[in-house]
Amino acid sequence: MIEPFANNHQSMQIGELVIENQQDKITIYGDIDVTFDAAGHHQAQQLHELTTKIMQAFDNGLLYSNNEAKSKENDDQSDKNIDNPFL
């Protein structure tokens, strides 16, 4: 399990859902089918634990004290215009 907003190198996966940890954000992408069986129950527990830890980080103010370190360089979107290689 990751420690939300604690570092820029942790990640985890629940089903096909990928969770990437950074100091100023948590990036979540992919999809998950939580089935009504033991495997689905385990995945639901993991999701619950993750969201609980994220909310605890907000409650502790960790995110708000870390405004100077932004991970813009790690964003998927760039501010630069590039030529389309498919044209």
Rank of each mutant, 00 (worst) to 15 (best):
E3N: 12
E3A: 09
P4D: 03
P4Y: 00
P4A: 04
F5G: 01
A6Q: 02
A6T: 00
A6S: 04
N7V: 02
N8L: 03
N8P: 00
N8H: 09
Q10P: 01
M12C: 13
M12S: 13
Q13W: 03
I14V: 14
E16L: 02
L17Y: 07
V18L: 05
Q22M: 12
Q22D: 10
Q22P: 00
D24T: 14
D24E: 13
D24G: 10
D24F: 09
K25C: 04
K25D: 01
I26F: 01
T27D: 06
Y29E: 02
Y29W: 09
G30R: 13
G30L: 05
D31C: 13
I32Y: 08
I32H: 11
T35E: 12
D37V: 00
A38V: 11
A38S: 10
A39W: 01
G40Y: 07
H41P: 00
A44Q: 15
A44H: 13
A44R: 11
Q45M: 15
Q45C: 14
Q45Y: 08
Q46P: 05
L47D: 04
L50H: 06
T51H: 14
T52N: 10
T52H: 10
T52M: 05
K53Y: 03
I54S: 00
Q56I: 03
Q56E: 13
Q56T: 07
A57K: 03
A57I: 07
D59I: 00
D59S: 11
N60V: 00
L62I: 14
L62W: 05
L62K: 11
Y64T: 08
S65V: 03
N66Q: 14
N66S: 06
E68W: 01
E68T: 14
E68A: 11
S71Y: 02
E73F: 13
E73A: 11
E73W: 11
E73V: 04
N74F: 07
D75C: 08
D75A: 11
D76C: 04
D79Q: 06
D79N: 12
D79R: 12
K80W: 02
K80M: 08
N81F: 14
N81H: 11
I82A: 12
D83E: 06
D83Y: 10
N84H: 09
P85Q: 12
L87Q: 09
L87Y: 07
